[in-house]
Amino acid sequence: MHGGLSPSLITLDDLRNHPKPIRNPFRGIVNDMLWADPDPAVFEWKTSARGSGFVFGTNVIDDVCARLDVELIIRAHQMCFDGYWVVSGKKLITIFSAPMYCNLYKNAGCVLKVDDELGIQMVAFVPESAKVEQVIEEKNRVWDFSFDNIE
């Protein structure tokens, strides 16, 4: 998903049954999922300061994963200095693929490789800096099979 979760998301059929084509609405489940953001400091749901969507806590992530029977939620939408951000016991990953965002930040970019067995590996694109090779080596091994395997 692009942004995050919605308090209106009860089952995956809530998305499957949404009228297509989907346009950017001003409210509702699709709007929420475009603009929502995780925040470990929030208990459940909070109105987003963005003016649309919600901010949600780690207990919401845990509940949604259990209710929808999914192991991992992958989203984008927020600049991450390391190119990615992992929360809630590796149940939600934010991937940000644009290094040196708008030429204003010295952030890394990242993509997620998924193999045939649904094993995942982060691949980071790190701006030129001291020890860049070491940083790339560490970022590319975050979820290597030898380190961790989501089952």
Rank of each mutant, 00 (worst) to 15 (best):
I61V: 15
D14V: 11
Y105R: 08
A130D: 14
R67K: 13
A124N: 13
D69M: 09
K91T: 07
C80N: 10
H77Y: 08
P19N: 10
D69Q: 14
L92W: 01
N140C: 09
A130Q: 15
I22W: 02
V70S: 06
V111P: 00
N31A: 14
K91M: 04
V87D: 09
A124C: 08
S129I: 15
L12D: 04
E44Y: 10
L104R: 15
E128L: 13
E151A: 06
I74Y: 01
V55H: 02
R141P: 01
M1C: 11
L112S: 00
S8P: 04
K20P: 02
T47E: 13
I95V: 15
S48P: 07
L12K: 14
E137T: 14
H77Q: 14
R50I: 04
E138C: 09
E128P: 05
D32Q: 04
L112N: 00
F26W: 07
S146N: 13
D39P: 02
D69E: 15
S97H: 10
P99V: 03
G28M: 04
V142E: 04
D69A: 13
G109D: 00
A124V: 12
W35E: 01
P19S: 10
A98S: 11
L5A: 03
T94E: 04
L68G: 12
R23S: 02
P127L: 12
F145R: 15
C110W: 00
R75E: 06
H18Y: 12
K106W: 12
Y84I: 06
V114Y: 00
N149Y: 12
H18Q: 12
V60G: 01
V70K: 11
G57A: 11
H77N: 13
G57K: 09
G119S: 04
P19Y: 06
Q78P: 07
K46S: 13
G83N: 07
E138N: 10
S8D: 15
C102G: 03
I10S: 07
A66E: 14
Y84V: 04
W85F: 04
A76R: 12
V126W: 04
R67P: 06
T58I: 10
I150G: 05
D37I: 03
V135C: 06
G83W: 03
N59R: 15
F125W: 09
K90R: 14
A36M: 04
I74Q: 02
G3I: 02
L5N: 00
R50T: 05
G4Y: 00
P21Y: 03
G109H: 01
F26G: 07
S8I: 11
S97T: 14
E133N: 09
K46C: 08
I22C: 07
K106N: 14
A130S: 14
V111H: 01
G3A: 12
R141L: 11
F56W: 01
